[in-house]
Structures are given as structure tokens and as C-alpha cells.
Design a binder for these strands. Structure first.
Lengths: 338, 338
DNA sequence: CTGAAAGCGCTAACAT
DNA sequence: ATGTTAGCGCTTTCAG
């Protein structure tokens, strides 16, 4: 039960604890021979340096904390894989905490990670994150933090973002080129910066192509299936259907298609639908879902690389990295070819 | 940059560090008045007890570690929500690590968590986890570990499992009752215990209903979409299609349906399909996917509760908790009603 | 009730 | 090249 300590090893070998420490840290000032002897016996005794004690004396922990809102789909999974692929090779371990989109829990998570002396943090804020003061405090203290996604473009901190405006614009334009004349945007929560960005891209496309205000609409639908379905059903009941929907997520897009189908409205023949933040399901469903793909893995990698620079005091050219995605056109938005 | 320590607070107030410690731990042997005075000033100074130092002196960290293979869908997300909902209320924080289904990384993760003095661990093993010796060592040392899912029924440790055999049996029987006369099981990796369990349930149903060996088949397909699609396409090419598929996951089920559709075979009219480990997508796609639902949230809760008992040395009635799920019949397996 | 002091396991000067 | 010692920030006897 009792753990073997550096002292136990030292006594067993009749050397000082510093020698054992040196052996394990492989410093220059120890004879290879002694080192090996110590290491060998230590292994036998099942000794392993206590990282807690180590943390107390050293600054470095080689632990990185990541806070994500949730794991409802592969989005953050891939982000984290990107992060890990960079950091694990550099000897870091990645500790993850889930905030469940609860700002209080998020803050508590961040504090836990800070207090556990993570060398740095990558934070993917919750929907209604309002903890920015605390974060700014830490940043000002010199604590390395990189934000990822869902953070205001103007927030004064290192961050990695997806170019929501641009790809929302492209997705909308794609619908326009397909000949859809009346387009609604089922958007996410207005509390989110990214929602505003996507709305902006949507409207930009509408205006560029001279849509009249009657021919487009932004409806805040949220990200829940039930909400989306209710919204679409209401549009049907009110006979206020557009020719195409651009949806905040694949999940909402599928919900939309599902309701339309229930009402014997066919996609893409009667109505076009395009999703956002592509999931693997997109190409497996029928009709195959067109969607905007985000570079999740790369976002994770970029955030991790940025964090490393921050930690190693290397110069960071730009505080904000904005990444591009791609538009995966499949069946659900293809009116033209019918 | 420099953090405020207990000493700083003590000096500022002209009290001993023990008093400050007492104030923060709210022990009985301190005057309420002193306590409040200390707390007040400490807050002002921005002091917060360093948990690392605390860990060094105390045994308890109120941190629980969770290792999961991945987050490709909401499965482990819900498991973790279950875990958190139990533990957060008890004052614990949950630290998560992702093994990416890599056994080495899994082991490294577990070691990191152990060395960081987590009070206990919940481990969801990888596909090819072979680290059992290390885990058994820790358990024998008295370290509280609970396993969840994907672990051999006979493994001598606390664990929470889903009754794969039973629900595989039920799902198969459902297909039988629908009138499908020839059924193939697209199974997961044979390295997994749960795969064997599901195969067992499948075969049990086949035998109970006197299917001849020619009328059922188990095909190891894995969990990748590409593999599943290739497998199904090959069956089509070989004119070896069954009347129904029971698939290892919703993902594989959707892949299967997708290939069938490409070949103008309709589900459920021509062929029935049922998934496993239901995802939210199941009810959104067309045809709506029948699937076996696992009690993910409850599994997380059970594991957390078991871990608490383990940590608090409370009696544990049964080493293994096996939970039941449900069969959500939707459209993809409904031949009878057509 | 409060303070002094030992110690948790380790690192990092400082000696030798 | 190795040993000695003073912390790291906190808890916890033990005195008083």
C-alpha cells in the first residue's frame, strides 16, 4: 500500500537521495554506472518518482488541460486527437474536462486544472460562457491559454477559430447557384459568436445576390433536435416554407429533413437542405447530406502548436488563427441536377 | 506571477500558518472570529490553498480519473455525464483521458492518473487492451478502480457491463418475429469480449428458433464504415444476401443501408436492418433505424457509485453490475407491417 | 484556541 | 561525482 519513495531507494543502495534524483532525471553530474545501478534497483523496488512532489518543487508538470463543452459528436473528439498528436510526442499528457455546457462547471474545471498546475490550457468555451474575467486574469498573470472555437473574434487572447462567416457564405451561395430562390437559415443560439458569424455570412450572400428581405429569414433554432423539428413543423403549418434551409448543424439538418419527409416534402426535390460541422453520418443517410466540413483535427493541432509556442516563449505571429474548411456537396442540396 | 501562499496570509495577519490552515479547513479548534478574519483577508489577497501541496500531505485529492477509448459518438459522452452527475455533487472533479483505442496510450494515461493521485479510476478499456496485469497490480495494492464496458465478464475486478448477450438475443428474435428467414450478424472485432457476447446471443436466438446453419452467418466486419460497406457490397456481388442484418453499431447499420440503397435494395421491404448502441441519429434518418439502446448514462452513474463505495470502504454486494437496455423498434426492421 | 515544528517526496543550490 | 541541506506549500501532531 505504502509507496516506495526516493528515500527508500537511497537507503537500500547506501547513496544519497540526490543521487537517486539525479539518476532519474538523467543529469550530467552522475556516473553512468551509478545511474544504472540506481535505476535497476529502483525498478525492482517498484519505485516511481512522485509527480505530485515533483510538481511542488518544479514549475513544469508536462500536463496540459483541455476543457470542452461536450462530446455529442466527433467534433471535439477529433479536436482532441489533433491536440494529442502534437503534445504526446513532446512528452505531454492531455487531461480533459467536460463542462456539459455549464459555465459554472467550466470555470470550476479550469480552476481545477490551473490549481493542478497544468503547464497550459486549451479551452473550448461553453455556449454561454461568461467567465472571461477569470480567464483574462490568468492570461495576464502569464498563464498559457489558447482558446478554440466559440470565442469572439475580438477577444484579446490566443485562439484558433473556424471561418464561420466565409463558409456560411459559401454554403448559402451554393444553394443560390442551385436555383433555390427563398432560403431560411436555422441558426444556433444567439449567445454564440459563431452564430452571429454564420448569420453574417448568410446575409452577405443574400445581399450579394440581391435577395429581397422577403426571400430570406434567420430563425434561431438552437441545436436540439426537438426545437428544430418544432420550428420546421411550424413553418409548414404556417405555409411559410422556403425553398432551401441552411442549418446550424448536421443534426438540425437531419431533423429538418425528417420533419419534411413526414410531411411528404422531398429533399432535395422540393426543398434543399445543407448542414454545418459535418459528421460522419452525412454520407450515410438518405439523401446524403451536403455539409460544411470544419478542420477539426487541424484546429486541435494548431491550438496545441500555439500553446507550445506560448509555453516555450516562442514568438507568435498572429494572436488569432482562422482556419478554412470545405463544402461537401452531396445530395440534399442538389436541385440543379434533378 | 508569484502565487499567494499560506505564509503570506499568515504574515499579513500576524497569525501562524497553522491558523490559516485551520481556517480554510474549517476545523473545530479555531475561533469563529479568527477564522472569518483570516478568510476575509485571504480572499482579498487572492489566496487559494495549493492543491498540489495539499495532495502531498493528504491522501485525498477529490479527483477521479476516467479513461475512455474515444468519443466518436455520444456513447462515452453520456457515460461521463452519468459519472459527473454522481461525483460532482460529492465534491469530486472528473479528469478524462482519451486513449484513442491505443493500448499503450491507455496504459500511459492510467499511469498518469495514478501518479497524479486520483482517488480512483474508471476505465473503459480499448479494443485491444492488454494492460490487465498492471491494472490487477494496482487493484491488489488497494487502488480503487472500476471498469466499464468492453471488459471480460470473468475479469476479477469491479465492473459495470451491458448485457450484450441478452439484448443481442432479443434484437435477433425481433427480426425472427418479423418474419425474416435468413439473418446475418455483422459483428465487431473478435478481440472484444462484447463481440463474443453478442455473437452468442445471436446464435442462441438462431438455435432457439431452429434456424439451419445455412440460414445464419456471423461476419466480422469491424466498426469502420468502409469495412462494413465493402462487406455488404461483396455479399451483394456474391448473391449471398440475407433477409436481415443485425449490426454491431448504428454506424455500421447505416453504412449497410446506404450500400443496399445504392444497389436499389429497399430497407425494410427487401431487407431488414437493426443497429446496436443507439445513437441520436437513429430516429432522424430514413428509414428510421431500429436499434438496441444501451443505458449509457446509467452505466456511468453505476460505475461512479460503485467507485464511491470502493473509496469509502462500503460493502459491495456484487463485483459485477450488468445492466439492461431496451429495443427501440423503428422502421428499418419492420417487415411484418408492410 | 493558537503557535511551533516535523514531515509529505522531491529538486536544486551548495559543499566536498 | 556525490552528499548535505534548504525549501516547495500545506497538514498535523504536540505544546502551551
Amino acid at each position: 500500500m505504502k509507496n516506495v519513495t526516493i528515500k527508500d531507494v537511497a537507503e537500500k543502495l547506501n547513496v544519497s537521495i540526490s543521487s537517486v534524483s539525479r539518476a532519474f532525471n538523467d543529469t550530467f553530474d552522475i556516473k553512468k554506472e551509478t545511474r544504472n545501478r540506481i535505476l535497476k534497483v529502483a525498478r525492482e523496488m517498484g519505485y516511481y518518482p512522485n509527480p505530485i512532489a515533483k510538481k511542488l518543487t518544479q514549475k513544469k508538470t508536462f500536463n496540459i488541460g483541455v476543457v470542452v463543452p461536450e462530446f455529442i459528436n466527433e467534433y471535439y473528439s477529433e479536436v482532441i486527437r489533433g491536440i494529442q498528436d502534437i503534445l504526446v510526442d513532446l512528452g505531454y499528457q492531455v487531461l480533459i474536462m467536460q463542462s456539459d455546457n455549464n459555465p459554472e462547471r467550466e470555470l470550476k474545471n479550469v480552476k481545477t486544472l490551473v490549481q493542478n498546475m497544468m503547464d497550459g490550457l486549451i479551452i473550448c468555451p461553453s455556449v454561454k460562457s461568461k467567465n472571461m474575467d477569470y480567464y483574462l486574469d490568468e492570461i495576464n498573470k502569464g498563464y498559457p491559454i489558447v482558446f478554440l472555437n466559440r470565442i469572439e473574434k475580438m477577444f484579446p487572447a490566443k485562439k484558433v477559430l473556424f471561418n464561420n462567416t466565409k463558409w456560411s457564405f459559401f454554403a448559402t451561395e451554393h444553394l443560390i447557384y442551385q436555383g433555390y430562390k427563398r432560403i431560411y437559415h436555422l441558426s444556433g443560439s444567439n449567445d454564440l459568436g459563431i452564430t452571429k458569424d454564420r448569420i453574417q455570412g448568410f446575409i452577405k450572400a443574400m445581399e450579394k445576390h440581391h435577395f429581397s428581405k422577403d426571400d430570406y429569414k434567420v430563425i434561431e433554432t438552437g441545436i436540439l433536435s426537438e426545437e428544430a423539428m418544432a420550428t420546421v413543423q411550424k413553418l409548414i403549418d404556417n405555409e411559410d416554407l422556403p425553398e432551401a434551409f441552411i442549418c446550424v448543424s448536421d443534426f438540425v439538418a437531419l431533423s429538418t429533413i425528417s420533419v419534411l419527409k413526414q410531411n411528404r416534402i422531398e429533399v432535395p426535390k422540393d426543398i434543399g437542405v445543407i448542414g454545418f460541422t459535418e459528421t460522419k453520418m452525412a454520407s450515410l443517410v438518405s439523401p446524403k447530406l451536403s455539409s460544411v466540413k470544419q478542420p477539426t483535427y487541424k484546429m486541435g493541432k494548431s491550438a496545441a502548436e500555439m500553446l507550445m509556442k506560448l509555453i516555450n516563449n516562442e514568438p507568435i505571429l498572429s494572436e488569432t488563427i482562422v482556419l478554412d474548411g470545405s463544402l461537401n456537396i452531396r445530395e440534399s442540396s442538389l436541385k440543379a441536377n434533378l
